[in-house]
């Protein structure tokens, strides 16, 4: 069985795979990349997206079997160096001159959400870089090149090297993670079992431990 999953799901899905005893191969990448691969004919059994839009693209292309189900939510958080040396406490702090802020590129979900959050907070940030992947934002903060970045809560939970500064609900954006089986799946029963596990309490608690909010 092959699972195409958003990169941010890797820590949680690796744990789930260890529990369900199904021979599964995981292809973790940015949701856009996965969508592009699937529309170009890549074969997979399950698609777990970090974004409803991409799932809709595949639905419209007629590649999805059944209705996608949202299995987790993710929120944004400000990632800063351990100990928060620059004293960053809110999105507004990111506009401080001299601060090196890195965001995800608006073409990927994390970047799109970050822009939405900054707009809600009415903050203008001049980023030093627009990373094509959230992991790029995370690594630049972790390496100390950037003072702050906007990432998912799950990224902060998984990473040992950064600290999270919460963003209040009024400014935050909640990302929905939908999952679905694919029409051309070769391993239908395994796919169904995997999706069921992800939605069941055991799967949900693993996702929670990885920083996601349950469905």
């Amino acid at each position: 069985m092959t699972v195409f999953a958003a990169a941010s799901l890797q820590p949680a899905f690796d744990k789930i795979a260890a529990q369900i005893h199904v021979d599964a191969t995981f292809n973790y990448a940015g949701t856009q990349t996965l969508t592009a691969q699937l529309t170009q004919g890549a074969e997979a059994d399950v698609f777990a997206s970090a974004d409803k839009t991409q799932m809709k693209t595949l639905l419209d292309a007629g590649l999805i079997a059944g209705a996608p189900e949202v299995f987790a939510h993710n929120r944004l958080e400000i990632a800063v160096a351990k100990g928060n040396p620059k004293g960053i406490h809110s999105l507004a702090d990111l506009a401080r001159p001299g601060l090196v802020v890195v965001l995800a590129d608006p073409s990927v979900p994390a970047g799109k959400y970050a822009q939405q959050a900054l707009a809600k907070a009415n903050v203008t940030v001049h980023p030093a870089s627009l990373e094509p992947q959230v992991t790029g934002v995370l690594s630049k903060v972790a390496l100390g090149e950037a003072d702050a970045g906007i990432v998912y809560v799950s990224d902060v939970v998984t990473s040992q090297k950064v600290q999270g500064v919460p963003i209040p609900d009024s400014q935050n954006v909640v990302a929905d993670y939908p999952i679905a089986a694919l029409k051309n799946a070769q391993h239908n029963s395994n796919a169904a079992a995997f999706i069921a596990f992800v939605l069941a309490p055991d799967g949900q608690s693993i996702l929670k431990a990885a920083g996601f909010e349950p469905a």
Binding site: S107, V108, A128, S129, L130, E131, P132
Partner: peptide, 20 residues
């Protein structure tokens, strides 16, 4: 990094555009 006008060369722009 990747910032238009400063560090976003064509290969980077291509990669970003590929996503959207």
């Amino acid at each position: 990094g990747n910032l238009p006008g400063r560090t976003q060369t064509v290969p980077l722009a291509v990669y970003i555009a590929l996503e959207s």
